[in-house]
Simulated scan of single mutants.
Amino acid sequence: MLQCLTLELEMGCFWLNWLAKLGYSDITGIDYSPLAIQLSGRIIEKEGLSNIKLQVEDFLNPSPKLSGFHICIDKGTFDAISLNPDGALEKRKQYVKSLFRALQDKGFFLITSCNWTKDELLNEFSEGFEILEELPTPTFTFGGRSGNSVTALVFQKK
């Protein structure tokens, strides 16, 4: 049984529904906000998906039961933590520690970021993770140079 974890349910709810519709049966979505959990619960109920667990968790201080996942998906949580004006560097380090504990050995971590480049993310997750894949994202060209406004990477826990 494949255990999947999504962080921050605003975008995570899309991933939860998609994974459940693909047939995955052990899916957990977390958010620090009880209101986000309630809203996601209503969406999941409306979709008729009963194989998704939702729980209130602060990913920087997770409960011990938040472990053993095969896959962790993040679309926005690391970005939000990084923008915190109070101790962002320490909070990013704690995020990496929490991620390491949440994933089983050789587990996969998918991150989509609007704030970080590939090289910056490689640096942030260099301890304990290795890059497997850079996923294609839309590009733009300005002034003769091309770039991406979104970075999407797949890491594996070492």
Rank of each mutant, 00 (worst) to 15 (best):
I44E: 02
F59S: 05
E124R: 07
F109Q: 04
G87Q: 11
K97I: 13
K65P: 01
Y95Q: 00
D119E: 13
R101H: 10
T117D: 15
L60S: 02
F129R: 11
C72F: 03
I111V: 15
L49T: 00
I111M: 08
K75Q: 12
I52M: 04
D74K: 09
K75A: 10
G107C: 10
N61H: 14
K53C: 05
S126E: 06
R42V: 09
C72R: 02
S98V: 07
K46A: 10
T77V: 12
L39F: 14
N61I: 05
A80V: 07
L60T: 11
K93I: 06
F125E: 04
I73W: 08
Q104H: 02
Y95H: 07
E45A: 12
A80K: 08
D119F: 15
K53V: 06
S67E: 08
E120G: 13
K65F: 04
L103C: 04
F69A: 01
G68D: 01
F108I: 13
H70T: 08
G87W: 05
F125I: 03
N51H: 11
E90C: 03
D58A: 14
R42M: 10
F108Q: 15
G41S: 13
F69H: 08
G41L: 11
S67D: 07
D119I: 14
I37V: 14
P62F: 09
C114P: 03
S98D: 02
G68K: 09
I81V: 13
K91A: 05
G68Q: 03
L89A: 01
G87F: 06
E124M: 08
L99T: 03
I73D: 05
P85I: 08
N61T: 08
K65V: 06
R42N: 06
C72A: 15
C72H: 01
K75E: 14
D74R: 01
V56K: 02
N51E: 07
G107Y: 12
K65I: 10
L54V: 02
S82I: 08
C114R: 07
Q104G: 12
I52V: 15
E57Y: 00
F108M: 13
T77I: 01
L89Y: 04
A102G: 02
N115P: 12
G48Y: 04
I43E: 02
G41N: 02
L89C: 00
V56H: 01
I81H: 04
F100K: 11
C72N: 05
L103H: 10
N51K: 12
I43Y: 13
G76F: 07
E120T: 14
I43Q: 11
N61R: 09
T77D: 06
G87N: 10
A80P: 14
T112H: 04
F59A: 00
F109D: 04
C72L: 13
G76C: 09
S113K: 14
I71L: 12
V56A: 01
F100I: 10
L66K: 03
G107S: 03
L60N: 00
S113Q: 00
I37H: 12
A102D: 05
K91E: 03
E47K: 07
F109L: 10
G76L: 08
D58H: 05
P64M: 11
D74F: 03
G128H: 05
I37N: 14
E57Q: 13
N123W: 11
L99A: 06
I52F: 02
Q104A: 05
S50F: 08
C72Q: 12
P62E: 09
